[in-house]
């Protein structure tokens, strides 16, 4: 039996032969008992495989575990440019924090000292109120100076066209 005939029989059983080729083969099978026997064998084997089917293997892991690996791949992740930007921001913050932390500490100490009147002794050393005002705003000149017990000091800058009133707490 030649190879071509064997393959033709199989194609016939698989429904892959053209009408013309199928008619030719059927005529051959009528006359050739050996070919007919082979055809029957192939047919039985096909029935066996298709009839019995496959084993019912199931996923060997839980769905949640199986899905997680898929989900991790298909869910949107931060892009590489976003990650790079985030990294740059972090580095810049770390650089600034090296200065900000000691600067903040110094500012806090200064604030506490100011509130406790530590600077009052320094200011008392300045004799006149005008000098004190000049120290505070040297470019301004006093236009209406009152005694300290009056509670306020006012300044006027003609060149700037601005008036400033200093109100004392005591």
């Amino acid at each position: 039996m030649n190879e071509k005939l064997v393959i033709q029989i199989q194609a016939y059983l698989d429904g892959e032969l053209s009408v013309e080729a199928r008619l030719q083969l059927l005529a051959r099978l009528e006359k050739d008992p050996e070919a007919r026997e082979l055809c029957d064998s192939l047919k039985a084997e096909q029935s066996l495989l298709k009839g019995v089917g496959e084993s019912g293997h199931e996923l060997p892991v839980a769905h949640s575990y199986f899905w997680k690996a898929i989900s991790d791949e298909i869910q949107p992740h931060p892009t590489s440019s976003n990650q790079a930007m985030h990294k740059q921001t972090t580095v810049a913050f770390q650089r600034w924090s090296a200065w900000l932390v000691p600067g903040g500490v110094i500012a806090c100490i200064a604030l506490v000292m100011f509130q406790k009147g530590v600077f009052d002794d320094v200011l008392d050393g300045i004799e006149s109120t005008g000098k004190k005002a000049a120290r505070i705003a040297p470019s301004f000149h006093e236009i209406d100076s009152q005694q300290q017990n009056a509670g306020f000091i006012s300044f006027r800058s003609e060149s700037e066209g601005v008036s400033v009133v200093w109100i004392s707490n005591y």
Binding site: M1, L38, E45, L48, L49, V52, G53, E54
Partner: peptide, 27 residues
């Protein structure tokens, strides 16, 4: 050789247990 005849295996698909065993054998 192509000439070697295919073995002929008969099954009865209605026999459930035998079918399951055959399924494993085919696997």
């Amino acid at each position: 050789g192509v000439e070697r005849k295919l073995p002929f295996v008969e099954i009865n698909p209605t026999e459930g247990l035998e079918r399951e065993e055959l399924k494993k054998t085919i696997d």
